[in-house]
């Protein structure tokens, strides 16, 4: 008895294949899902997802939280790539707002000019290094 399991994150697929047992950290407690589990939709906490494949092997993945969907014929884990918490999200939002304000009040020019200069210096250094290597090789 096994079931199709897909663990996907917004940045890529983490696991796709058959599984006999999936153990994951649900928001309301540890969950173990076997085939023919009742349809379930729940949120999961950051932690380890353990998968038992049909040939008895056990694989484990770390997820930063997300959602779990159990359907009669498939299990889908929508995994977060980053740790999420209300405060963290709030802080990120504030930072994004601040950046916009800073840009509007005119700090951008200085920053981008300095950044461009630094980047130019790096590029020049790289080109010099490449030329040196070529001379040694040639």
């Amino acid at each position: 008895m096994d079931i199709q399991l897909d663990i996907v994150s917004a940045e890529g697929e983490i696991f796709s294949g058959r599984a006999r047992l999936v153990i994951l950290p649900g928001s309301e407690g540890e969950l173990g899902i076997t085939p023919r589990h009742a349809p379930l939709l729940t949120l999961i906490k950051p932690g380890e997802v353990r998968v038992q494949t049909p040939d008895g092997e056990e694989q484990s993945f770390y997820v930063g939280g997300g959602a779990l969907e159990v359907q009669p014929n498939r299990i889908t884990v929508l995994a977060d790539t980053a740790a999420r918490a209300h405060d963290l999200d709030e802080a990120a939002a504030l930072a994004a707002q601040q950046r916009a304000q800073e840009a509007l009040s005119g700090h951008l020019d200085k920053i981008s000019y300095a950044e461009a200069q630094a980047e130019l210096a790096r590029a020049v250094a790289q080109i010099k290094l490449i030329q040196k290597l070529r001379k040694i090789k040639g």
């Binding site: 309301e28 379930l40 939709l41 969907e69 929508l78």
Partner: peptide
Amino acid sequence: DYIYEPSAAEILDALLIR
């Protein structure tokens, strides 16, 4: 329908944001 843990509204909210 699914069994929801904790509630449908909360899960939908989290899912929509993601």
